[in-house]
Computed example of a mutant assay.
Amino acid sequence: MTITIREGGPDDLPVILGMLDSCVEWLVSQGRTGQWGTKPLSESARTVESVTRSTAGGEVFIAEVDGAPAATLTLADSPGPSLAHLPSPGEPERYIHWLASDRRFKGHGAGSALLAHAAEVTRRAGVSLLRVDCYAGDDGKLVRYYESHGFVRTETYRGTDDWPGQVLARRV
């Protein structure tokens, strides 16, 4: 098994939305519907617009396992408009958006490879702060996933419909 990371872009939107839909399907099968609900995210105009905006304004990366798209993330210079209420870190940052994997590749390390790549890209850009936000409800597995990759909890927040969120940061 070989993991390679390539740059992505707007043409990858269907692949990215497919990965997000795969995540929703997997979360629903686990009874964990609080994060993204029960319907495919590709059917949500708001989500499609957010992913489109993110991919157009950031650096998109696709991890491929043996040539097949397996995971994605986008790096940007800020958390974006939905988190404008968060305090500024007071320094340049890179911010991870839309980390997701096709659940057929769960356990293959594609997400971990993307997080390592994001840290390296951030470091090469001369920026030392990498941040991400995620769902902090249910069993907290997602927060612990980021912590296992060197991130530490910073701000806790409540999003739309009282959605529990956690911002995490990592020095690179």
Score class of each variant (00 low, 15 high):
residue 77 D to E: 13
residue 7 E to Q: 14
residue 72 T to G: 13
residue 41 L to G: 02
residue 87 P to A: 15
residue 156 T to Y: 10
residue 26 W to E: 06
residue 4 T to G: 11
residue 127 V to M: 07
residue 28 V to D: 00
residue 50 S to G: 11
residue 166 Q to L: 08
residue 96 I to W: 08
residue 3 I to L: 09
residue 120 E to D: 13
residue 128 S to L: 08
residue 127 V to A: 01
residue 82 S to N: 14
residue 121 V to D: 04
residue 146 Y to N: 01
residue 140 G to F: 03
residue 70 A to M: 06
residue 126 G to S: 10
residue 124 R to S: 13
residue 1 M to F: 09
residue 98 W to C: 10
residue 77 D to W: 03
residue 159 G to R: 09
residue 47 T to L: 08
residue 88 S to E: 14
residue 3 I to K: 09
residue 21 D to M: 06
residue 84 A to Y: 03
residue 123 R to N: 05
residue 107 G to F: 06
residue 136 A to G: 11
residue 49 E to K: 11
residue 77 D to F: 03
residue 126 G to L: 03
residue 119 A to P: 05
residue 147 E to P: 00
residue 138 D to Q: 10
residue 91 E to Y: 02
residue 115 L to S: 06
residue 79 P to L: 11
residue 153 R to Y: 09
residue 145 Y to G: 00
residue 6 R to K: 12
residue 135 Y to F: 15
residue 85 H to K: 10
residue 159 G to W: 09
residue 133 D to H: 05
residue 53 R to L: 12
residue 161 D to I: 06
residue 22 S to I: 00
residue 62 I to E: 04
residue 74 T to Q: 13
residue 75 L to W: 02
residue 160 T to M: 14
residue 35 Q to W: 12
residue 140 G to N: 04
residue 38 T to S: 12
residue 145 Y to D: 01
residue 135 Y to C: 09
residue 6 R to W: 11
residue 20 L to Y: 07
residue 58 G to S: 04
residue 104 R to D: 12
residue 9 G to A: 01
residue 45 A to C: 04
residue 10 P to E: 15
residue 128 S to G: 14
residue 168 L to E: 04
residue 12 D to R: 01
residue 143 V to C: 01
residue 125 A to F: 06
residue 32 R to S: 12
residue 28 V to A: 06
residue 27 L to P: 00
residue 105 F to S: 02
residue 69 P to C: 10
residue 154 T to K: 12
residue 136 A to W: 05
residue 98 W to V: 08
residue 27 L to K: 05
residue 80 G to N: 11
residue 44 S to I: 03
residue 161 D to C: 08
residue 31 G to L: 05
residue 135 Y to I: 05
residue 63 A to I: 03
residue 89 P to S: 12
residue 172 V to M: 05
residue 30 Q to D: 00
residue 105 F to R: 07
residue 111 G to C: 11
residue 81 P to W: 13
residue 131 R to E: 00
residue 41 L to A: 06
residue 137 G to R: 10
residue 20 L to A: 09
residue 19 M to N: 02
residue 161 D to G: 11
residue 81 P to I: 15
residue 124 R to K: 14
residue 162 D to F: 02
residue 7 E to M: 15
residue 136 A to K: 02
residue 21 D to K: 09
residue 164 P to R: 04
residue 168 L to W: 04
residue 12 D to N: 02
residue 82 S to D: 15
residue 83 L to A: 11
residue 1 M to D: 10
residue 95 Y to H: 13
residue 104 R to L: 10
residue 40 P to M: 09
residue 82 S to F: 15
residue 58 G to N: 02
residue 168 L to Q: 10
residue 71 A to P: 00
residue 132 V to Q: 01
residue 25 E to S: 14
residue 60 V to Y: 07
residue 74 T to V: 15
residue 63 A to E: 05
residue 82 S to M: 12
residue 149 H to D: 02
residue 114 L to V: 00
residue 165 G to A: 07
residue 101 S to E: 13
residue 37 G to I: 05
residue 85 H to C: 13
residue 115 L to T: 10
residue 64 E to D: 04
residue 16 I to E: 00
residue 6 R to L: 08
residue 54 S to T: 14
residue 52 T to P: 01
residue 141 K to M: 10
residue 110 A to F: 01
residue 18 G to W: 05
residue 38 T to K: 08
residue 86 L to W: 15
residue 113 A to H: 09
residue 61 F to N: 09
residue 155 E to V: 07
residue 130 L to Y: 08
residue 3 I to H: 06
residue 152 V to W: 09
residue 20 L to D: 03
residue 53 R to N: 13
residue 47 T to F: 11
residue 37 G to V: 02
residue 113 A to C: 07
residue 125 A to I: 01
